[in-house]
Structure formats: C-alpha cells, structure tokens
Design a binder for these strands. Structure first.
Length: 113
DNA sequence: AGCCTGACCTAGG
DNA sequence: TCCTAGGCCAGGC
C-alpha cells in the first residue's frame, strides 16, 4: 500500500468489502491515513471502472448511506440493482439499515503501513 | 506548465 | 441547528 498510491489503496480496500456490506468514502480515506481526502476516494472508485478486475464500487457510499454516485454506473438504477442483488435494501437512493451493514476498514482490516 | 474539478467529510460561526 | 468554507491527491484541459 505504501508503495502504491492513494488509488491502489482505495481499490484494495473496496475489493475487500464483504458481500452484503457497504463502506463509506470517509472510512476508506481515514483508513489510508488521509481523513480529509474522502473526495479522492470517490475519484479513485470512479476510475475503478477502468480496472481490469471488477471492483464493487456500488458497495461504497457516503457517510449517510446515500448512493451519491449511482448516476456514474451508467444506469440510474444499476447501483441499486447491484446492492439489492446482494441482499442490501435500498430505498430512494438510500441504504436501509446502513448502520448494521456498514463495514469499517479501520476496524475490519489490518493497518496499511 | 498551470489551473480546475471531482461519487466527500469535518469543523467553525 | 443550519449554513459556509477548507482540505486532500490525481487527472484532464
């Protein structure tokens, strides 16, 4: 991770998000050691579409569990469909029971170093 | 080569 | 309690 840039770190964390769980930009940014770089997390995740391997970018939402970037999935309901297919309930672009399915990399993942 | 922007978050007034 | 501003890394024009 240290060798890799901020982007690589984001990709690794997002790929490690368990199925049926969601994480937030801020949590990932904080995990990478830059709490105020949450904006770049969104950018990195956006760039994830260019990656060879599929990255569950739909599992990444903002701190209130809202599908802020759903419009970037090509279709308006693509992100919602993906989440619901994993058992996540989404209503009006907001993840229900967000507190329960929230996955914090800082707690669940080993430190990057 | 420099400026602008971007799927956000936190703090201060 | 709501609104405003600042900050971060990287890529595009």
């Amino acid at each position: 991770m240290t060798d890799a840039g901020f982007f690589e770190g984001v990709f690794q964390v997002v790929r490690c998000i368990p199925l049926g769980r969601v994480s937030t930009y801020g949590a990932i940014a904080r995990y990478l050691g830059s709490p105020q770089s949450s904006r770049m997390v969104g950018w990195a995740v956006n760039k994830s579409f260019s990656e060879k391997e599929f990255i569950p970018a739909h599992r990444v939402v903002n701190r209130i569990g809202m599908l802020s970037g759903k419009h970037y999935f090509g279709g308006a309901n693509t992100m919602k469909e993906l989440l619901e297919s994993e058992g996540i309930v989404v209503e009006d672009d907001q993840v229900q029971d967000f507190c329960k399915i929230f996955w914090d990399p800082v707690k669940e993942m080993p430190e990057p170093e």
